[in-house]
Design a protein around this nucleic acid. Structure first.
Length: 798
DNA sequence: AATGCGGTACTTTTT
DNA sequence: GTACCGCATT
């Protein structure tokens, strides 16, 4: 156990103040890299050692599982084994855990109930339930698009709405129907004994609100609540925090002076890093914290210990373009460091090669590759990068992205496990009932569903009990009852069998594995051997889980898998470069950071182009990305990019991101767009592709080298189109006139245009300058699309 | 009942 | 351009 001196050692005054706070609520405004995690962990240790609080009276909430792991790890170092008793997790994992204990006490205002062996539905399950609901209510899928409805329901839940409340507030036809969908959806979830992500929080909040005994229990247990990344909390999460940390009205009246006695609430956040408003996070919550808690202490951490002064200035120069913010300047405690390197590539493959070459170089100079991260705006961007890394035999880890647990074979196997765990789960039942094939067709299953509905049975029970009277063939009846008996048998097994063994039994007895092996042998499905590997990997995960978890049962396993998206815990330690979206990188830091795809329409993303608020969030995202870097920062963009390929030729050629132009040239090297139109040119004369309009400085090797030439293995030429010139400025100039000479009709905002495929649309926005314009066109019913007039045939209507 | 073809929608970001 | 879904065919 550490002494106080050690807990405060090496901290600045503000940090010390934060760690050694007394009772009551406080707000820490912590800029990027200001030692926030250090403060949080030491604060927890301080609560235990100096304020003599029990570890299990402390609840620390983080925003991602990664952050939670990191915090656990650091606390273990500070307080040793006692750290096990501190509850550290995401809002979702905390609520899931609480609901496993308490959901029997809950009844929703609509009268729905759940049992403690509920399962957690993912996006796919959700959509399929909504789809069923829309069909059942005889509504048009075009008008009530299931995808959209899912989003709508999620939004409502994050704002704290229950179906009944929304129903009472619905004003028009559409809202009334949506309220019906919402209610029916919730009813279906209850029937399946399932909750979605948003329910985990909303349900628990509602439970705390309606049940004072439960609320009291939680308030008594968790006397200290700490919330990280508070700028990203939404209404229902905030409500949860208040229900646990804040005294109830009765308590306030009973003992107004003592409500914070031996209790504390600490929230930490930074408005400039709020990047989850699309998930209904609201940074106004953190801004209003002081008025909600007038007695709270405010501490600001503005000294950055992470990044070089150059990187910080880049970050500051970008974020200052936002209007919705509280003025704050991060002070660097480090030297100027190296200038930010900017690189313009031909395309996304070229971009990836640049990164790969740079990594090689850094590695040769002694940089650990595990200290390098490649960040991008969208998951799809990892593909090109991975392709190149694989070719170069460079090990890497993709964090998040195409998730392991979303693969078909994994979902199938987990479907069995979910059904074993919770026999009510109709989604799981439908997933596995004919996987592998049991000779059951659509009609049989339809009969089964209506039979189950009439008798109010679960699908699993219905499968056992359905008789010949239902017009189901003998063969089908046999298949159904065999299936049901098999699952029932496993349900008994599952009480004592380890998860990994249960998994083995399932894949063996169902013939699932045999079917895959057969496919692999015959080469029918070239993915089959990969699928087998994935299932084995899942088996390994289960094995590992059994050795590590406190309570290694099926329940804990399924909950964990539903809430934790990555499985790369082990891989994280290997010395390899990491790839992730900027969102996943939040809260992390790396000595070397690459940010890819700095192009208008990609970053900032297309969807943010026509809303000022969304644009400011993109800018905050850029700020988060930049401030991840400690020593070296690389910014890259491609002149053309093959994504958006489905729209056949639009935005093949890109425009450099506005964020690049917000950075002072003094901080950059390499090719990069001029921060402003040169004063001696009129706007019409300005050509963003004219080299003389660009700041050019000698770039360090290898960025001006024809890197592709050295790197392309001749074996697989497919992805490297031979006709593509290497990335040199000579080739760059050569190719320029070609694209410029394509004439196109100038349009302005408000113009109506006709497109062969999308029909009539209206120009809502123009991006770029004279010779290089993209139009954001709003097509009726088709939505908005970014179009390059040189490739998309747009006819102006008068 | 299973297979295969053709049409459609799809790409933000995560728990 | 691809992945998925629904439909029609066998």
């Amino acid at each position: 156990m550490l002494a106080t001196g050690n807990l405060l050692q090496g901290l600045n005054d503000h940090q010390k103040q934060a760690v050694s706070l007394g009772w009551g609520p406080s707000l820490i405004v912590a800029g990027a890299g200001s030692g926030k995690t250090t403060v949080l962990t030491r604060r927890v240790a301080y609560l235990m050692t100096e304020l003599h609080q029990a570890p299990d009276s402390i609840l620390a909430v983080t925003f991602t599982n990664k952050a939670a792991e990191e915090m656990k790890h650091r606390l273990q170092k500070l307080v040793g084994m006692q750290a096990r008793h501190i509850l550290i997790g995401t809002f979702h994992s905390f609520c899931a855990r609480a609901l496993r204990e308490e959901i029997d006490n809950y009844k929703s205002p609509e009268g729905f109930t759940w049992k403690n062996n509920f399962v957690i539905y993912d996006e796919t399950d959700k959509q399929s339930v909504v789809k069923g609901v829309v069909a059942r209510l005889n509504l048009d899928e075009k008008v009530f698009n299931p995808r959209e409805m899912c989003h709508r329901i999620s939004s409502l839940k994050n704002d704290g709405y229950m179906p009944s409340r929304y129903a009472s507030e619905a004003r028009n036809y559409k809202e009334t129907r949506i309220a019906e969908i919402f209610t029916a959806y919730q009813s279906d979830l209850a029937k399946n004994n399932a909750l979605d992500f948003d329910d985990l929080i909303l349900t628990f909040v509602e439970l705390l609100k309606q049940n004072t005994t439960v609320r009291k229990r939680f308030r008594e247990r968790f006397q200290h609540v700490l919330v990280d990344e508070f700028q990203d909390t939404n209404q229902s999460q905030y409500e949860l925090v208040r229900l646990i940390a804040e005294a109830s009205e009765e308590e306030k009246q009973a003992n107004p002076a003592g409500i914070w006695h031996e209790r504390s609430l600490l929230v930490v956040g930074d408005v400039d890093q709020s990047i989850y408003s699309w998930r209904k996070a609201d940074f106004r919550i953190i801004l209003g914290f002081q008025s909600d808690f007038p007695v709270s202490t405010l501490i600001k951490l503005e000294d950055n210990y992470r990044s070089t002064a150059t990187i910080l200035e880049v970050a500051n120069s970008i974020i200052k373009n936002n209007s919705e913010r509280i003025e704050k300047v991060l002070r660097s405690s480090r030297g100027a460091g190296t200038k930010v390197k900017c690189f313009e590539s031909q395309d996304e493959i070229d971009e990836a090669y640049f990164v790969q070459e740079e990594l090689k170089r850094l590695s040769a100079r002694g940089r650990q590759l595990s200290n390098c991260v490649i960040l991008y705006r969208t998951n799809a961007q990892s593909r090109a990068m991975e392709e190149v890394l694989v070719r170069s035999h460079q090990p890497y880890t993709v964090v998040g992205g195409t998730r392991f647990y979303e693969r078909q074979e994994i979902k199938d196997v987990l479907g069995y496990l979910k059904l074993i765990y919770n026999g009510f789960d109709g989604q799981a039942f439908m997933r596995v009932i004919n996987t592998p094939r049991r000779g059951l067709g659509k009609t049989t299953l339809e009969k089964l569903v209506s039979f189950a509905f009439e008798r109010d049975l679960t699908l699993l029970d219905a499968a056992k009990e359905i008789g010949a009277a239902q017009g189901v063939s003998d063969k089908s009846q046999r298949a159904l009852s065999d299936f049901a008996n098999m699952v029932k048998r496993w349900q008994l097994d599952s009480l004592e069998t380890p998860v990994s063994d249960l998994l083995s039994t399932v894949i063996k007895e169902t013939g699932y594995l045999d079917k895959l092996k057969e496919d692999a042998a015959q080469g029918l499905d070239e993915l089959a051997s990969g699928r087998i590997e994935n299932i084995m990997e899942l088996h390994n995960v289960a094995k590992e889980f059994e050795t590590l978890a406190d309570k290694p049962d099926l329940e804990a396993f399924l909950t964990r898998i539903a809430l934790v998206s990555d499985i790369d815990q082990a891989k994280m330690d290997e010395d390899c470069v990491k790839l992730m979206t900027i969102h996943s990188a939040k809260g992390l830091e790396f000595p070397v950071v690459f940010i890819l795809g700095l192009e208008e329409g990609l970053f900032p993303h297309m969807r943010s182009l026509d809303s000022e608020n969304a644009m400011e969030e993109e800018r905050r995202l850029m700020y988060v990305a930049v401030t991840r870097a400690a020593d070296l920062l690389y910014l890259t963009y491609a002149r053309k990019r093959a994504s958006f390929g489905w729209a056949n030729g639009f935005s093949n050629f890109t425009i450099p991101s506005r964020f690049l132009k917000e950075i002072s040239p003094a901080h950059m090297t390499g090719f990069y767009p001029s921060p402003e139109t040169p004063a001696n040119h009129s706007k019409e004369d300005y050509d963003p592709w004219d080299e003389s309009n660009w700041q050019k400085k000698p770039t360090q090797a290898p960025s001006t080298q024809p890197i592709r030439k050295n790197s392309v293995p001749p074996a697989k030429p497919k992805a490297f189109r031979q006709q593509n010139p290497p990335t040199t400025s000579a080739a760059w100039i050569e190719s320029k006139p070609k694209e410029e000479n394509i004439p196109f009709e100038k349009l302005s905002v408000g113009d109506k245009v006709q497109h062969a495929k999308f029909g009539i649309g209206e120009v809502t926005q123009i991006i770029g300058d004279k010779d290089k314009e993209l139009y954001n066109v709003d097509f009726k019913g088709e939505g908005k699309r970014l179009m390059d007039p040189r490739f998309a045939k747009l006819v102006k209507l008068t």
